[in-house]
C-alpha cells in the first residue's frame, strides 16, 4: 500500500512539474461558468420553494406532514421504491448474465429488447403498460385466450398495477452497469474456481457476485432515488386514489390550488432524496462509478 502511495505521489509531483499548476485564469474560465450555472438554477428555485412554502398561513410544513394523503403517499412511495429497486437489481443481474452466457439467439433478442426499451420514451413505455392493464386490455385478452380468466381485470389504476411498469421502466438502468462490470470480469478467476471444483452456486457467490457488487449497488441507489420522484408511470397507472409523492405534490398545485403546501412537500422530497444520494455517494462512491 505504501509503495503504491509513494508511486502515486511521485507521479503527481512529476505531473506538477511538467505542467503549470491549474492556473487561476484557467480555473476562472473552466470552473466558474458551470458552477454559476448550477448555483443559479439550483439555488434560485430552492429559494423560491422556501418562499412559496412560507407564504401560506401557519406552518405549511407541519400541515403537509399531518395530511393523511401525504403520510399515505410517503409510505406507498417508499415501499414502491424499495420493492422496485430490489426486483430491478435482481432481474437486471439475470438479464446481463443471460446476455453474457446465452446462445446467440438469446443474446440478439435481449439486446434488441434492451435497445427498444432505451430508445422509446418513458411515456410510450407507460402507454404500453396502460394498454396491457386496462380491464379488457392485452393482458385480459391473453388470459382469456388461455382460458384462465373470463371477467375483466382489476389492475389498472391500482397500487399493484404500478409495479410491473415501474420495473420495466427502470430495468435498463440496472442492466447497463452490470453488463459493463461483466465485460471486465476476469475469466481466468472463473476458470480457476471451476477447475478447483467450485460448483455453479459457489462460482456465482464467490467470484461473480463480488465482481458485480459495485455495479449492483450503484444501480440500486440510482433506481431507488429515481423511483422516489417518479411522475409519469405512477400518475397514469396508479390513478388518483393511489398517488405517490409526486402525484400528491402535483395535486396540491393543480387541483387543490395550495402551491404553498406543494412547495413544502417538494422541499421534504428534495431533502430526502438528496440526503439519500449524498450518503450513498460517500459510502459507495456511486458518482465515481456511474456511467
Amino acid at each position: 500500500m505504501s509503495t503504491s502511495g509513494a508511486a502515486v505521489s511521485v507521479a503527481t509531483r512529476a505531473r506538477r512539474r511538467g505542467s503549470k499548476t491549474f492556473g487561476t485564469a484557467e480555473r476562472h474560465w473552466l470552473l466558474w461558468p458551470p458552477l454559476i450555472f448550477f448555483a443559479l438554477l439550483l439555488v434560485v428555485p430552492l429559494v423560491a420553494l422556501f418562499q412559496q412554502a412560507l407564504t401560506g398561513q401557519g406552518n405549511t410544513f407541519s400541515e403537509a406532514v399531518h395530511m393523511d394523503v401525504f403520510a399515505k403517499a410517503v409510505e406507498r412511495t417508499l415501499i414502491l421504491a424499495a420493492v422496485v429497486t430490489v426486483v430491478t437489481v435482481i432481474l437486471g443481474a439475470c438479464y446481463a448474465l443471460a446476455i453474457a452466457v446465452g446462445p446467440v439467439w438469446i443474446k440478439v433478442t435481449l439486446m434488441a429488447g434492451l435497445l427498444i426499451s432505451l430508445w422509446t420514451s418513458v411515456m410510450v413505455r407507460t402507454f404500453g403498460w396502460m394498454l396491457m392493464e386496462l380491464p379488457t386490455g392485452a393482458l385480459f385478452w391473453a388470459l382469456d385466450k388461455l382460458q384462465l380468466r373470463s371477467e375483466p381485470l382489476n389492475l389498472y389504476q391500482t397500487t399493484p398495477g404500478m409495479y410491473p411498469a415501474m420495473v420495466a421502466v427502470m430495468l435498463p438502468f440496472a442492466v447497463l452497469p452490470v453488463m459493463a462490470a461483466l465485460s471486465s470480469l476476469d475469466g481466468e478467476q472463473v476458470d480457476a474456481a471451476t477447475i478447483f471444483g467450485a460448483g455453479p452456486l459457489l462460482v456465482l457467490r464467490a467470484v461473480v457476485l463480488p465482481a458485480l457488487r459495485p455495479a449492483l449497488v450503484s444501480a440500486g441507489v440510482l433506481v431507488f432515488v429515481m423511483a422516489l420522484g417518479f411522475y409519469v408511470t405512477p400518475l397514469l397507472l396508479g390513478g388518483p386514489s393511489n398517488m405517490t409523492l409526486s402525484g400528491v405534490i402535483n395535486a396540491q398545485l393543480n387541483n387543490a390550488n395550495r402551491a404553498d403546501v406543494g412547495a413544502a412537500m417538494s422541499i421534504i422530497l428534495i431533502g430526502g432524496t438528496v440526503v439519500i444520494y449524498l450518503i450513498a455517494d460517500r459510502l459507495f462512491k456511486v458518482s465515481e462509478r456511474w456511467g
Binding site: S246, S266, L269
Partner: peptide, 10 residues
C-alpha cells in the same frame, strides 16, 4: 437525484 416534480415546483 433531484425529483423532477419538486424541481419543477421550484
Amino acid at each position: 437525484a433531484i425529483p423532477p416534480v419538486a424541481y419543477a415546483v421550484g
